[in-house]
Design a protein around this nucleic acid. Structure first.
Lengths: 200, 200
DNA sequence: GTCTATACTTAGATAGAC
DNA sequence: GTCTATCTAAGTATAGAC
């Protein structure tokens, strides 16, 4: 049961985030949320219209957090490929999977426009963000012969698929392998750095 | 409601396969299976012990089908990279996602050893199968500078992640992009074919 | 704001008749 | 083999007291 020094509404949203990640929308009941948050029935329905409204708040927060986390690496002051590598190799709770990606498997989330929107936007944003980084690398002559948009989709897919493989295996190893394999493939497109760098 | 010219047990398994794919294990009730199969309560419990037993039969069949489908391309008589490409570009019901991969997000499937085993085995097998194909390509001099095992994980991850991106976007486009990006990266490792082929 | 009582539906399964 | 009744628990929510 969760409780920080915060109010009921806040605890409810955080508990919903945890349970959605663990069990998905279909597998998460209002009762379970209340129990996890240590909040009663009446309190929950006072603060939120119901399960969908709570899920909406939870999903939007999780999506925003994911974007911020990605920006931490992708917006760093470093060469494009180094930023991509930092993003790919960032510490992750691999066996828990991606809290946003898992929602794509939730039929009731995908069927509700309000719940679905943040999921869709997150991946649209992420592909674009990665595409921009790659395009910068190409423009700087640091990366050669890459289609930025298409490669960005490949990179996001490797992460999302890596989570699937890790969960299937019950081990983080296949995730690490998928990332290693991708980085090896990307390395072949790095311009050989002369003593003067990419502008050499 | 499903019905071929087959018996109740068969219709139940096929209906369970469809519903597991669409709604997952947690989201699929015995009642829904009965309704989809056009089979009564009593009949279902006569043929199967319960939901878990039915799901087990369904998942095992789906896993076997996935392996057979992959083998159709990966076991063809063609160069390694061509086989991988044929596998990646095979016609797929992209928006429905992978019927095996989606189960990794189902907490009740992963918590039940009997249900989980076919999921785990499928991906272990698939990575090994792809790894063998790549290793053949390397041995034949057709592919250069690739770590077969690690690259195999990357390839499977791109597919699984491609499904996630497609479902998030509500479009097959990001899946196709992810695959295109991967094939472009792999192409850089194909040995230039001289007039005499790889042994040139 | 939070609690308790209440309500209606579904999940998941058993029992026994046909 | 299949049907209908029946059962306990849980899902999801409302109503009204405190």
């Amino acid at each position: 049961m969760y409780s920080g020094g915060v109010d009921a509404a806040e605890r409810l949203v955080e508990s919903t985030r945890v349970l959605l990640w663990e069990r998905g929308y279909v597998g998460t009941s209002p009762r379970a949320i209340q129990a996890h948050a240590g909040v009663g029935q009446g309190s929950m329905y006072h603060h939120f219209d119901g399960k969908a409204a709570l899920a909406r708040a939870a999903i939007e927060r999780t999506a925003a957090e994911l974007r911020a986390a990605a920006d931490a690496q992708l917006g760093a002051d470093a060469p494009a490929l180094a930023r991509v590598e930092a993003y790919l190799r960032r510490e992750r709770d691999v066996l828990r999977g991606c809290p946003v990606g898992r929602l794509t498997q939730d039929p009731d989330v995908m069927a509700d426009a309000e719940l679905r929107r943040p999921v869709e936007q997150t991946f649209t944003w992420l592909r674009a963000r990665l595409g921009d980084v790659l395009a910068e690398g190409v423009a700087a002559g640091e990366l050669v012969g890459l289609d930025a948009a298409v490669t960005a989709a490949t990179i996001v897919a490797v992460l999302q698929g890596g989570y699937v493989l890790a969960r299937a295996a019950g081990s983080g190893v296949p995730f690490a392998q998928a990332v290693d394999g991708l980085l090896a493939l990307l390395a072949a497109h790095a311009a050989p750095a002369g003593p003067l760098g990419p502008a050499d």
